[in-house]
Nucleic acid binder design. Structure first.
Lengths: 202, 202, 202, 202
DNA sequence: CATGAATGAGGATTCATTCAT
DNA sequence: GATGAATGAATCCTCATTCAT
């Protein structure tokens, strides 16, 4: 599926804007971020942004979507491998941490469980994001279920295992970001992998 | 330390406002919340709020502080008990979950690791909150250290254990809130306690 | 006309408030001054002020009125003396300067020709103040007229002479205030007296 | 130095706003003036003003600055002429009066000796305005000094002469404004010139 | 009379969004 | 398509004034 020069350039510009938006949203949060600052950082006019995104919400959601899609692909590729559930979990932790390490800003923007985007103010926002997030959860939960069936994992509600895993990853990155983003996450990956597996192994 | 009627009433009104603010901040997030809505919910005039709080920031931070103080007391009481580290950890999980279950909105407001209050926009806010949060982290970390020293826990960086524990609790409540806050957290408490302890035990 | 203790105390309190108001109005200007600050400085509650003055405007105008009345008395006593017009002018300059030196704040508040109290916003304010001010002008103008009649002064419109005199005094105090209110105005009095008299003498 | 159409229009609009602001500030005073009224008079939206001026203070100060700059040029051109000091003073009075006659509102806004902009509330305002005003004072004072040196003027502190002159001009316009701005100031110019010169001549 | 908590109108300022050029 | 000036709704905060205690 090749794109014409026209389309290629358009996509490039869109990405430029998304990049600038990512930085600003990460620094300020959704509400405090202004299109002015994003436009300036992207070296576009404010008006131009509206050629690529319907509005501020759309811009933000596109960002989240893009990230969730990439996470989806990572998860999918791991989940579909033919390794044992435990090995797949190990892979998952490692690859998600690597992804988030490289996409620190995405992590800072995306905290679905907390929800800067609440049901009350952005109902359609949730409609657009939650499904993707839940799909990711489902994929991981599948692995958990398999592990339970094969007897490798404790017999607990599989979704609890998934959320536990995400909670660990979340806190791990959270600490890393909080401490300034110094040091590699590689070692942390090994530590929380060991904790999680020992915790959930039967 | 008895209060005069005057002071008692003042405190009650302050609490009314705090309660309304809690609800609104939880529903909207800090930026999107308006003093208008808080005032209306508290059945006070907008101006009256400024008799109790310096400004919107102050109102929000007071909320967080109050919550962190209560958490602090819970943690302190557990930490200082004479039980074994592992028993204290069990207690901790259970009591924090109970507290957050009863203070769902506080949980939704407080997500320091995500940081709606960023360094760039609210530096003094961090000055007021972070220390309290870190004090809590320190107290828990002390227990972890003790567990490591007594050989009950794995030899990993103690702070990692603390963050892991908080991550578990966080994800547990997060899931509960996400799923509508139905069902008791009691059972979940048992599950994640088991996972955590098996994960970190030597 | 003796006052009962009741009345005496009331007057004293009124004066306390006026004094505080004078300071604050001088420092901030009418609009920027707040009743809060005035009340605090007077060591009264905000509400109490309304027992003595109808409102903020009234408080301010009472201040001006009081000052204008005192000036009136000074002017009157000079004007009615039996000295030659020129001698009376000399006296006038000296005594007005002394008064304003001792009432620097009144001077800073009162700048009728400029008018923080404009026709558009405080029409009744002008009604209350302007007549008094104009009465002062008239009294001085009378002296000027007399000087012209006796041939001591130039034959120019008498009101111009009055305004010229006031302009000199005004600029003299203005400079003194601007330079920090140091040094006595006595010497300046002599200088501008000489300038004015040489300027207007026939 | 030609401007593009863009720039020309921008300047024109800025001037429109300044004009409206001048009127409103003159009528109401700084504090009582509202951006709403200024915007309405300028036939702009309130928000648009912020595209031309940083805030209300900036708008006001720009007004003052512009006026002081024009006065500066007038004073400079007179001061640098090769006439005798006395002739230059004559010129000065006449030209300043003409300028203020044509810029009545500027006069009503600008009363530095009274100071709506006090040190306490607008310190940076003074930083922006006072220097310009003082420069004007210096320029005139130079002429006074020269006149003293050549023996044409009395031996008094030169700054006193300057302030006296300004006081005369001030009171002259003040009276004119107070009396409704009717009649030309030309004649008044001659009168106060004569008074001032006779007053300060040796 | 005094108090000070409460009111609520009002004002400066910001910013997403639109639209003429 | 891109621009950025203009819009105007929205929001925080202040403060004169009132009134129950």
């Amino acid at each position: 599926m090749t794109l014409s020069r026209r389309e290629r350039e358009k996509k490039e510009k869109r990405d430029t804007i998304l990049g600038a938006a990512m930085t600003v949203f990460a620094e300020r949060g959704f509400d405090a971020a202004t299109l002015d600052e994003i436009a300036e950082k992207a070296e576009f006019s404010k008006g131009a942004i509206y050629g690529y995104f319907k509005n501020k919400d759309d811009l933000f959601l596109s960002l989240i979507e893009e990230g969730l899609n990439e996470l989806s692909e990572i998860i999918k590729s791991v989940v579909e491998s033919s390794l044992t559930p435990i090995k797949r979990i190990k892979d998952l932790i490692q690859r998600i941490l690597v992804y988030l390490e490289e996409n620190k800003d995405f992590f800072r923007i995306f905290a679905p469980e907390r929800g800067g985007f609440t049901e009350k103010k952005h109902p359609e926002a949730l409609k657009r994001i939650l499904p993707k997030h839940q799909k990711n959860i489902e994929m991981v939960t599948k692995v958990m279920k398999e592990g339970i069936r094969t007897g490798e994992l404790k017999k607990v509600e599989s979704r609890v295992l998934t959320f536990t895993l995400f909670g660990l990853i979340h806190s791990c990155i959270g600490r890393w970001v909080m401490e300034g983003g110094k040091g590699s996450l590689k070692r942390d990956a090994r530590v929380i992998t060991s904790i999680f597996l020992d915790g959930v192994r039967r």
